[in-house]
Write a protein that binds this DNA or RNA. Structure first.
Lengths: 197, 197
DNA sequence: CGTCACATTGATGCCTCTCAAAGCTTGTGG
DNA sequence: CCACAAGCTTTGAGAGGCATCAATGTGACG
């Protein structure tokens, strides 16, 4: 009955698709919070204007990410959102979403669960960045993401992977080459095999 | 009536204090999730055993942090929690907390809000780490945390601050000295003044 | 007044970034 | 089917910056 007819829905809330051209602002600091966003394609930078007047990038949103979650709990946005390239996104209107959450606690529960997983994931990434050595950082990243057989399946390009773990792509390529030479990994067309004793 | 008599409470849920000796485990991967924790003092490492059999640190918990939020949404813990030093923590029992959240949606709402803020904060820290230059990273960190007058008030030691932003303390000291020499900041006994034009 | 942790500065070396060039893959259009 | 372009992949050379090790100064606290 009240089941989602579309997996993009949150509960019964149907998102609205938006297109934004490169350079345009989705919202500005101080604007009334219109809702939660999900980036389908493109790239969005969240920028905060500091008291001192300088810009500080809070986050760069990549496709597949939700952003502006905090807007649900605040009347106004706390940063600017600027499209870095032509972008498509879904907007879950705040009013509909809060009404939905009030009506159906289960959906709010699921939403909280998603946030909790996000916190977990972000903490993990932050911890990964603590590792200074490229070799160790790459190994840990592979260990975290591999399956039971110790196989890490390609997801996107290695260049993207490099950015994700905070290395230049050159550093990653070199590190992978060295790891293979020393027998720690085996590189295959569709992924990387870990050789832990 | 149902107001919290203690600011440590979440809704009407009263936490249970626990003490754990250095080296002891709070919980192990696969244990039934007992609840949400808050670290009062000490230090706790969250370690995941990977399929390959190696240990990967997911996060190191510092005093003042909640952890194991995801346990509320999962029947079992997904990592080990080991006390690095003698630690004191509060446990919010899962059963009581879920009952409370079901009973009082407002508390669940507040909890979700806290998670959303945490996501925001973590993303910001992650973005800060993207900045490779020590000079720029320190400046951004100061900008993010300063008040309207561009004043950054001391919170803990500089050594802690260095760790927070991912630098060695030596590198931070040197960078601060250089920033003061070049007139970007003014160092005072109780904080740091930013000199943005 | 001694200890302990923080704060500060010096010297050194390595590791990663940066710039550069070339091979490789994929897709597109003639 | 080939040619070309664009983006990813890979390796090279060089430099700079941060980590590391080390020593000393400083402040708080018992």
């Amino acid at each position: 009955m009240s089941a989602s007819t579309n997996e993009k829905n949150i509960g019964n809330v149907v998102p609205v698709e938006h297109s934004v051209a490169a350079g345009a602002a989705l919202f500005r600091q101080g604007d009334a919070a219109s809702g939660l966003f999900y980036l389908v394609s493109g790239r969005v930078r969240l920028v905060r204007l500091t008291p001192a007047g300088t810009e500080v990038t809070m986050h760069t949103v990549l496709p597949g990410e939700f952003f502006a979650e905090a807007s649900l709990f605040s009347p106004r946005y706390h940063c600017d959102a600027i499209a870095l390239s032509d972008s498509i996104m879904l907007l879950y209107p705040k009013k509909a979403l809060t009404a939905e959450f009030r009506r159906n606690t289960e959906d709010l529960w699921q939403f909280a669960a998603r946030l909790a997983r996000q916190v977990q994931g972000l903490r993990g990434r932050l911890t990964l960045r603590q590792i200074r050595s490229a070799r160790e950082r790459v190994l840990q990243a592979l260990r975290l993401q591999c399956d039971e057989e110790g196989f890490w399946k390609n997801r996107g390009t290695l260049k993207q992977f490099a950015e994700e773990i905070g290395l230049t792509h050159e550093a990653l390529y070199r590190t992978l080459a060295e790891l293979e030479r020393s027998g720690k990994i085996v590189r295959l067309p569709d992924g990387i095999g870990l050789q832990e004793k």
